[in-house]
Amino acid sequence: MIDFRYHLVSIVAIFLALTVGIVLGSTVLQEPIINSAQATAESIKKVNQDQRDQISALQAREEGTSAFVANAAAELVKGDLAAEHVVVVEAPGAPSGLRDQVREMIELAGGTYTGRVALTEKFIAPEQAGVVEGLAAQLSPIGTVFPEGATPYDKAGQVLASALVTTAPMQAGTVNTAASSVLDVFQEGGFISMSDDPAKRATLAVVVAPSTPYEGEAAEAQNGAVVSVAGALDNAAAGTVLAGTATASGTGGVIAALLDSGDEASQVSTVDTLDMPSGRVVLVYALREQHAGRAGAYGIGSGATAFEPTPSASPSPPASGG
């Protein structure tokens, strides 16, 4: 008969064997596992460092290119906007940090900067659409005919354009007496703000898109309001460019909305690299192209067809909008 001592010795022997096996197994496997983990970590570390080096190199190249273009900008755009007057219209949320650079580029190209009109959040607020439409009807110059089916912002854009731009070179730099109160009334109502003297009409217009897309249920209507103003300016001027950063040409952006809009997309040019020195040079080229009666979508966004317009001969004044 097997006694208790035998069972105890057997159990101890089994656990001792397991312990010896675990110790031997861990000792044999430990070094290969550690070596493999260390090799993997070193490989990942090298890949990460290589990627950081590539990013640093690309940033250095971009900074160098931007510096070169900025220094050469005066020669790159020299005379491209000679004798032209340019007004800047900002959408709500447009980047204020680019105002000076845009004005400087216009003036480097020989253009006359007439002033800036900033549309306010109130202007594009859906609940204010009826008020905006009422102001447009009240302030429209005698003889104004709104297209059938025009939206409140089509009408407001048309009336604002009558005070801001013209297709006639001889009228550039002069006030449209038939629309002399338009800007003041819109400003008093809190729908726009102004700087310099945008009432002295321009021949070309730049509309600056918001730095980030509008959000919420009203976003589509707000984009539509900005697109309507851009289209109205183009119809009343020798040309208009809607410019912004790459976010404006992405999903929900104003440039993307214009490119999807149909008629305005074929008439108004777009530039989505306004935050780059080269993009501001492209803005001038796009304005010049508009003056020649052509349009295009330029930049790096999905809707862009090229980074810049194709070089062409000096434009002749068009008979109507760009």
Rank of each mutant, 00 (worst) to 15 (best):
I33N: 12
D3C: 02
T19A: 15
A74G: 08
V281K: 05
V88T: 02
S193A: 12
D197L: 05
I300C: 05
V185T: 15
P213G: 11
E121L: 13
L204K: 08
S56A: 15
S278P: 12
G279K: 08
G299I: 12
R201S: 03
N35D: 10
V89N: 00
I2L: 13
A125T: 04
A246Y: 06
A109T: 11
L164E: 09
S193W: 13
S140R: 01
E188H: 12
P309F: 06
Q38E: 13
S181H: 10
S193M: 07
T120G: 03
P277Y: 13
A129V: 09
Q30A: 11
A319N: 14
K122H: 12
S193K: 15
Q38L: 15
P152G: 04
S140V: 04
P147I: 07
P311H: 04
R280C: 04
A218M: 03
V89T: 01
I14D: 11
A199G: 14
V28D: 03
E104Q: 15
V227Q: 07
P141L: 01
A91R: 08
E84L: 01
F68R: 07
S96G: 11
L242K: 04
G224R: 06
G115H: 00
L81M: 09
A199F: 05
A129H: 06
Q187E: 15
G303Y: 02
E264G: 05
V131F: 14
E127K: 09
A225R: 01
G296E: 03
D100T: 15
G190D: 05
N71K: 14
P213D: 12
E31Q: 15
L24P: 05
A304G: 04
L135F: 08
G21T: 10
G130N: 13
V227C: 10
Q267F: 05
G252N: 09
A295M: 04
N71H: 15
E264S: 11
A202N: 05
P213R: 10
A60L: 04
V69W: 01
L108Y: 09
A161T: 07
A73I: 04
A163F: 11
A248Y: 13
Q290G: 13
Q128T: 12
K78W: 14
L139R: 10
